[in-house]
Amino acid sequence: MQTRLRMVLPDQELIKLYEKMFLSREFEERCAEQYAKGHITGFLHLYSGQEAVAVGATAGLHKDDYILSAYREHAQAIVRGADPRRVMAELFGKSTGICKGKGGSMHLFDPSLNFMGGYAIVGGQFPISVGLAFSARYRGEDRIAACFFGDGAVNQGTFHESLNWAQLWQLPVLFICENNFYGIGTEVHRSSALASIHKRTCGYDIPSEKVDGMDVIAVYKAVKYAAEKVRESGHPYFIEATTYRFRGHSMADPAKYRSAAEHDVWKARDPLPNFANQLLEEGIATREQLDGIEAGCARLVDESVQFAEESPWPEDSAVWEDIYV
């Protein structure tokens, strides 16, 4: 049963959630186009379908909270406030990129937003999140570390080591599993003995819950509750958000391991049109308003592509910079 939206957030903030989801989708779909044109190269993992998780979760966190993620992280950075123009420039490998063109799609980072990185070794961000949470407690800071990861990461040693450590040291880490059911082409029940991922925290006595990751309000409410619980108690908490990527693992993957029927079931649950309909039904926004928002997002992404195209390449001398302080 859907919540009455106005009971959760004021109208403007609800509309903002839609705008961020739409911007994420628009950005990702334009990335696919730019990849096809050869402007974006290397690995490219798109987030289309999972927007409700990044948008709902980010809205439930404080600005001071740390966010860490894996390599499917464009949307998480942009939703957090990263300039889409500089993110696109990063994907183009330009010097104006968010990491000067040295990171690329999988390594976005913006400390001014407490967005502490996209990591491309599966599970690498777990212990780093724990360390950031420790630094927050050590320094007496009122912030938590939110660690995003996929279902594929939960069989890495770092997952278990970090869950144990966070609970043992009683650290404010919010683990957020984006379960899109596939680690590349391996479905979760073929890689995890216990495929219901949130249940796996019982070995570490960490409270956990499962939430519908296609429902931005459900994610928002769950993360807001969990983040406050983590903040107040200083203990870790674990959320599993079930979701689906509408594209393959990366641009190289046609996703032949999934049936059209399965894809259709999830496509019917696409968080964008569904949330738009909710906003319209409850009279929170008009179709004209949403059209205006969508056009604004498209313009911003147009500008981002233009900015990336027109930006200069890094100087050759940059290869020797930023290795050491």
Partner: peptide
């Protein structure tokens, strides 16, 4: 002065996070 679990990879990962956080 912190005793840790026998989790070498995470000892280093936690150190990385702590260093990033200003320690």
């Amino acid at each position: 002065v912190k005793d840790t679990p026998i989790s070498e990879n995470t000892i280093i990962g936690v150190s990385i996070g702590a260093a990033m956080g200003g320690l």
